[in-house]
Design a protein around this nucleic acid. Structure first.
Lengths: 346, 346
DNA sequence: CTCATAATTTGGATCGTTCCAAATATCAAG
DNA sequence: CTTGATATTTGGAACGATCCAAATTATGAG
């Protein structure tokens, strides 16, 4: 039987002061005498008192929890993003509650609704596929600060932090072209997302400015996961144009692509160039080390959290959109010589 | 300006009923007339009312959020564990709040305290390194159901779900011995954890029952991460006894070990056998596919959640400890022929 | 010792919901 | 029409902490 929880009144009674004084002690007010503070604190420890934030929130102050909702925790990009946010929100004295939607819009709605009911100071959302401005409307109407990361939500009047997908991809493909590659595939990603469209746009732009016509058949969409990367790479290897390089939707896909290549006796970084996108922590230590477009997931998480905190503190800042630069990091997976047509057909 | 939030009283006023009736509608009571229910519901939608769970919780009912605290979200084992828990808690109508401690005891204390203050129905904890029974004492004293997973907390009177580390490792090493390996290293893991001790115990037991003496020098501890695996593998390769196989603390270490082997021109699954522990989702699709001791992370998450729900519903079940079986899954990384001493020394 | 001033302390009233007992409306049968 | 039962609805009184204005106590100068 869990007994009735201890309240301020119990403390007050036991310490021989009033509940108001106990409250003052709890809030670390300077108005209270050191002697009484000590006595009260001791009683608090003695009785095993647990602060009831619900009651407190009901009466007065704002919430100190910020909600973080991501669409795919099993992708380490998001795990790192969350860790970056953690650093910032934690040192600002907020608690973060993290929820995973697994790309389900229903789940996302539920989770956000639940967080609202619990009262949150702000929300950082990496939206599930298909999220619309209407989903965010009630939040902004209620004046709850929202920062959207990774994927923009078109039409929503909220602060947004995305990375320069188009520019990053263009730069990566330009590098492959410089190395002499001509038949470059685009692997992975859900075709119906804005991020996918942007990365493909960068891919096309780079190839076209080199005078290479891109057929739709060069683009192999798939789930943006390691498994999806394997599928996409396998499909690409079976294609009549024998690719010698690939730019991948993200690092997870790139790792999968490497697996897929090896399964078909091609060695990434040796006779097939692979470039990823994100720069997750494993990219550096994998073998071969993954060349990738770095958007610094942890840093992005930190920045997103800072944007949110600014909004929370400012009461109401207007929505700003930041497109953070992407930087090509060359490691081993994009190196090696270019496969001859014969090898490529093997 | 965020305007004053809408309350039941506003609804009551607008719909021409009493606040009690609105409350009844909110709680889906059968006591209320269909016509009034419809009218009230419409007003609720119209005014954009948001249920205030804090107020509700203050007055009466139990919480419907369960806390999940894990020690390393960037390890996909835990991400999958969390996803498994999600499935169960979600369909039981609970909301889950997930927090990451990153192996910090301070952070863990903070996070658990904060969750308590917010009022949680129960907690699933994958404890940070060094967690003691004293950390959990207040929770159980307050009658809050707790389930500890992955790592047991010695002396704590809470339900525990761990996997058969010793048996699993013993089985894996026995398999390597059967294949003819004699010099087998143990790679990765923090040496001061109970799980590490158990896995090492299984490792020693298997080798000793084959008449092989294990020197402490065969055990290479490291962070239980991909990066740690690289470090451990590199150290092992430099050892005077030329190992031909390794059992790894977990899959992350095993992946890192594969990377480390390749960096030294040894091919896992071909001339060096590697076995992991966990069976994370990538194990199947990696190249080479990872042989590993499967403990089914998602399934484990589901089971942990079920244990917690049972405890929550039962009011107070006594602490049970479940050691779930581990099963050796043979894939490619443990295959291949055994390197000759000369190769092994290369 | 007195009085002003500063330092502490303290009872309500209040936040938004639920619960309870009691009030009221509805209905069918006598 | 009553009457008794049944179906709905409804005012408080909680819940636990905060805030405010007012009360009490300590401090110090004259």
């Amino acid at each position: 039987m869990s007994k009735r929880p201890v309240t301020v009144i119990d403390i007050a009674h036991a310490a021989g002061v009033s509940k108001s004084t106990v409250s003052l002690v709890l809030r670390n007010s300077t108005l209270v005498n050191e002697t009484t503070r000590a006595k009260v604190n001791e009683t608090i420890r003695e009785l095993g008192y647990v602060y009831n934030r619900n009651a407190a929130k009901l009466r007065g102050g704002g919430s100190e929890v910020i909600g973080i909702v991501v669409n795919d925790l099993t992708n380490s990009f998001f795990a790192e993003l969350a860790v970056g946010m953690d650093m910032v929100t934690q040192s600002a004295g907020f608690v973060q509650f993290l929820a995973n939607t697994g790309e389900s819009l229903d789940r996302q709605r539920e989770v956000i609704a639940s967080m609202r009911e619990h009262g949150m100071a702000g929300l950082i959302l990496s939206p599930a596929r298909g999220t619309t401005a209407a989903d965010l409307k009630p939040l902004v109407a209620a004046g709850i600060p929202v920062v959207v990361v990774v994927r923009a939500v078109p039409g929503a009047k909220v602060s947004t932090l995305i990375s320069d997908s188009e520019g990053g991809t263009r730069e990566a493909v330009a590098h492959l072209l410089e190395q002499g590659h001509r038949r470059i595939a685009f692997l992975g990603g859900f075709a119906d997302t804005a991020v996918f469209a942007e990365r493909v746009r960068g891919y096309r732009a780079a190839l076209e400015s080199a005078g290479i016509a891109v057929s739709d058949g060069w683009i192999f969409d798939s789930a943006p996961s390691r498994a999806g990367g394997i599928t996409a790479a396998t499909a690409a290897l079976a294609h009549a144009d024998h690719f010698t390089a690939a730019i991948c939707f993200n690092d997870a896909v790139a790792f999968g692509a490497c697996d897929g290549l090896r399964a078909h006796k091609r060695e990434p970084g040796l006779d097939f160039a692979v470039i990823g996108f994100d720069d997750v922590i494993e990219a550096k230590s994998a073998v071969p080390a993954l060349s990738t477009v770095s958007i610094d997931p942890q840093g992005m998480g930190r920045r997103a959290a800072q944007m949110l905190l600014k909004q929370i503190n400012a009461g109401q800042a207007e929505a700003e959109t930041i497109i953070s630069a992407a930087r090509l990091v060359l490691r081993d997976s994009s190196g090696g010589r270019i496969a001859t047509p014969k090898e490529a057909a093997a």
